[in-house]
Design a protein around this nucleic acid. Structure first.
Lengths: 101, 101
DNA sequence: CGTGTAAGGAATTCTGACACG
DNA sequence: CGTGTAAGGAATTCTGACACG
């Protein structure tokens, strides 16, 4: 009980800046582009998780490589789609065993 | 790389209040009694880790059971001492194998 | 001893805009 | 498109003290 620390939204933006080396401006901008989804406190303060921090670092690297926020978003969508395909393939395999070893 | 989320001091006191159900007053008081040791930001804001949160919950339970902060501190000291004793006992055993099975 | 509260100040965060490109 | 910055306000946190007991 009480696990899942990596997913828990507990950090304010200032700490995320320290952890990632990014500016507040950048972090808020990546949120606007739907690359991260922090929660909000009762007083409207953004709250981030460790996975958000990891994702921000990954996003920042991509951008530095020349990717646009849109490209990054699109690439992730495709990867997710591939994973869905693999999942279905696995289920079919389990059900019909075409590649049973 | 980048592990050790549980130990990282990243939460402000407000979030710790939410997570533990304790008041700011209580949390700061337990710190004064040396039961927790948050870090500070450049601007003097306290920063807590998930282990601090766990510890705070444990402390609050003890207090509710009637323990004093001093008793809690003392009990922990004794437990730590026991662990040291066990460690040494283990090392002696490894070196001289009195109980080798 | 452990905790609530009002007080005043300081640090933090928020939004929308101007700027460059 | 991605990011810096100054602006003004709102939310958050800090410390020391008075209070009760």
């Amino acid at each position: 009980m009480g696990e899942g620390y990596r997913e828990k939204k507990v950090m304010t933006i200032g700490i995320v800046c320290e952890l990632t080396g990014l500016s507040e401006r950048q972090i808020r901008y990546y949120e606007k582009r739907k690359l991260i989804h922090p929660e909000r406190s009762a007083g409207n303060t953004r709250k981030y998780s460790f996975t958000d921090v990891e994702r921000l670092v990954a996003v920042a690297e991509k951008i530095e490589e020349g990717w646009s926020t849109h490209d990054i978003k699109e690439k992730e969508r495709k990867i997710t789609q591939e994973q869905r395909t693999d999942l279905i393939r696995g289920q079919l395999n389990a059900a019909f065993g075409m590649y049973r070893k």
